[in-house]
Write a protein that binds this DNA or RNA. Structure first.
Length: 269
DNA sequence: GCGACAG
DNA sequence: ATCTTGTCGC
């Protein structure tokens, strides 16, 4: 099933058992993914486009690593944005973390989800409860077993979650090159990601000024694909949606010794 | 056998 | 993911 040797990557004879276990866990996760909107998003998305009746709060997380340091040590950042007529950073926190496993294609969740979940649990209650959604740097159901990082975090933390990836994880006969052609001949900046099986895996969206390289959005948990796409589009000032972009910038800054933690007054308990 | 492989 | 400055182009 896997075209590479995980045992070499993980470096121990038990790795095949680990991957088998992970595979079963992903199959179980997939059966628990909620592809529907749990919340009422009509407060934000009108027929005319994004228009907020009330403030929309979306969080983004990202983990960065340095080559010069211990490969198992990284920095994570979580940010919270308020989206009204504009986008404003209202909360940010970064910290050092250690990962348990190396990156193995299609098993990113087992490397990053535990870290993200721990951080989510440590968020000030007030911040955590105000979140309408969480954006994750990685796929949701656009995954070989329909159980990507965004599903793992969304289910684990019971939060509406959307997966956003910068590169296509090839499944169901999909190939990134074919998208180049579709994009060139398409008038829309949004394309359904449908494989040979006919399953709708997600959407390829041309955001910002990058009309050539799309980002791939997929359902994580408790948010429909339609809403996921609308959310991401409403949060893109550039190619990468702001919550993830800021989380990436802050985690990298923290890696360099700079701290951008931010606590707006109304965020204190 | 060859290619493909989120971060 | 990360190593990396200036530089070509809209």
């Amino acid at each position: 099933m896997l075209g590479f040797s995980v045992s070499v990557i993980l470096g121990n004879p038990r790795s095949n058992e680990i991957v088998s276990s992970w595979t079963r866990m992903q199959e179980d996760l997939a059966s628990n993914v909620d592809y529907t909107d749990n919340n009422d998003w009509s407060h934000f998305f009108k027929p005319t486009g994004f228009q907020a009746d009330r403030d929309l709060f979306v969080a983004g997380v990202d983990i960065s690593f340095s080559t010069t340091e211990d490969l198992s040590i990284g920095t994570i950042a979580i940010v919270k944005l308020r989206r009204d007529s504009r986008q404003q950073l209202v909360y940010s926190h970064s910290r050092e973390v250690s990962v348990q496993y190396p990156y193995v294609p299609s098993f990113l969740g087992f490397r990053e989800a535990p870290i993200i979940s721990t951080l989510m649990k440590h968020l000030p209650l007030r911040v955590r409860c105000s979140l309408d959604c969480l954006l994750v740097d990685g796929n949701g159901v656009l995954h070989p077993r329909k159980a990507g990082l965004a599903c793992q975090v969304g289910i684990g933390e019971s939060i509406p979650c959307v997966g956003v990836s910068k590169n296509l994880l090839c499944v169901d006969g999909l190939n990134e090159k074919t998208f180049r052609e579709y994009i060139a001949s398409s008038h829309s900046n949004e394309i359904d990601v449908i494989g040979r099986s006919g399953f709708l895996w997600g959407k390829a969206i041309m955001t910002g000024n990058a009309k050539s390289k799309p980002i791939f959005v997929s359902v994580g948990h408790r948010v429909s694909l339609i809403t996921s796409a609308r959310l991401v589009t409403a949060l893109c000032e550039f190619r990468i949606p702001s919550p993830i972009r800021f989380a990436d910038m802050h985690s990298r800054a923290y890696l360099r010794g700079e701290c951008n933690d931010l606590f707006m007054e109304e965020e204190f308990p």
